[in-house]
Design a protein around this nucleic acid. Structure first.
Lengths: 167, 167
DNA sequence: CAGTTCGTTCAATACCAAATGAACAAGAAA
DNA sequence: TTTCTTGTTCATTTGGTATTGAACGAACTG
């Protein structure tokens, strides 16, 4: 292969890498994760070979602290795992390329707690309106019934999405 | 009705109101909207009677600017509409009690653009990898195919959710 | 053992987006 | 017309949180 073509190759790969990182940075922002988390996952996703924390900090220009915390989060989501490499005591990280790991982990660890909190809160509100006399505050009661329907719906939605992730 | 019971009533209503607002504040935070937007929608949701901007700023202790911008956003979502009241030139706002208006508007105005952006970006990446020689970078190409599958999936998910909202 | 390497934690900092409020425009009232 | 009322916009301030980097513990190495 000619070295000119080779150079074009490298450029294309580098650009791709950058674009993939950008993609995951955006995804991270949309679902409310730190930009560094998106960067880390993006770089790992675009790289076949396992990377050390040191490589992540150098290539992404982020601090050791950010890398450590980002990787911790991504591991808790099951979106990244560390691979053992013979004769190197450093951790080597690879992306779980099934994106559902990232999204599934996010839903499990971040979304679910919110839904649970909302359900609890709605029950508490229920207690409050229960003491109100029957025909007064009819509209308020009606609206709360609507909200409770949403609790059910929301709790149904999560499994649905998870199922969709699996498909 | 005894005035003591009446007092208990008012307390319960006030607490309910507060709890409903809290609920929507949390929802707002989860989907990445400003706290004030959640507060506004929450108060309107908990109140039968249409409210003026002035009432919103006083009861929520937020600035006129925040109220104006929050209402603007909520109207753009179709989650709030203004009602004309005879002999009062001020705008009077009521919540669209179908929560799907809020979520639907959010998906339409906020989520959809991100998906569109991602789709465009993926096409650009496609162009980049297209120039790479066949068997090299096989893994990279494979991973991009995975991402493209997600574009399709994401674009399918949105209508699904919208349908669920309607149900 | 002392000296390195590696990863984590957390207090300090830097950054950014949300909230404010003054200034403004458009009507209405007087 | 002038004066109020009402709502919007936008430059500034504020508040919250993401990122940093120093300090630390643990686990190797020589």
């Amino acid at each position: 292969m000619a070295s000119g073509t080779q150079g074009a190759d490298e450029r294309a790969v580098a650009q791709t890498e950058k674009a993939v990182i950008e993609l995951f940075v955006r995804l991270a922002q949309v679902i409310g994760l730190q930009r560094t988390v998106g960067e880390i996952y993006g770089l790992l996703y675009a790289t076949e070979r396992p990377l050390t924390m040191d490589e992540l900090t150098r290539r992404l220009r982020i601090s050791k602290g950010s890398a450590s915390q980002g990787l911790k989060l991504l591991r808790s989501f099951g979106a990244v795992r560390s691979e053992y490499i013979e004769g190197d005591r450093r951790d080597h990280y690879v992306a779980e390329v099934e994106v559902r790991h990232l999204l599934g982990g996010f839903l499990r660890e971040r979304m679910q707690p919110h839904l649970a909190w909302g359900a609890t809160r709605l029950n508490e509100i229920d207690q409050l309106v229960a003491v109100l006399p029957g025909d007064n505050h009819k509209v308020l009661k009606d609206r709360l019934v609507r909200l409770k329907r949403w609790r059910t719906r929301g709790q149904r939605l999560l499994p649905m999405i998870l199922k969709l992730l699996r498909a």
